[in-house]
């Protein structure tokens, strides 16, 4: 269900957690936004690139059993919401840990993994997941 260009243009966010920062109020966003919802017009055209911290804490999570086709070989896998150390909440899979050992408050860090692909002859899409901190 993926399109090559659609995924390609999100690479900065997918690989390196590039979001946006509003130069007016300083609030940071992930994924990137072209406008700050608080400063609105004053921020248009002025949003600056912001790299989100790669470490964070598990805010909540679920162990997914009814899985999308792309993740069949990962079943069951853990998806979570991570609060990064710069206070951005985002959703990602949590890997390299047994589901029963995941808990709210656990320290994790971003890693690059395969997200899915466009079939055996299609493009492979990579993006961030989180793994327990070393």
């Amino acid at each position: 269900m993926s399109s090559t260009a659609r995924e390609w243009r999100e690479i900065p966010g997918r690989y390196n957690l590039k979001g946006s920062k509003c130069p007016e109020c300083g609030k940071v966003f992930f994924p990137k936004r072209s406008m700050c919802p608080l400063c609105r017009r004053a921020s248009i055209g002025k949003m600056i690139e912001y790299k989100v911290e790669r470490k964070g804490t598990v805010y909540t999570y679920s162990v997914v059993y009814d899985v999308p086709e792309a993740n069949k070989r990962m079943k069951p896998y853990v998806v979570g919401m991570i609060r990064t150390d710069d206070d951005i909440l985002l959703t990602a899979q949590i890997v390299d840990v047994d589901p029963e050992n995941v808990e709210i408050g656990m320290r994790v860090q971003a890693v690059l993994r395969k997200i899915d692909d466009d079939g055996p002859s299609g493009v492979i899409h990579y993006g961030f997941k989180f793994a327990p901190c070393e």
Binding site: S2, P31, P68, Y77, V79, L90, A92, Q93, I115, H125
Partner: peptide
Amino acid sequence: QQWEASMGAT
């Protein structure tokens, strides 16, 4: 779709 579903969140 881009930042939840694609990331594995059903």
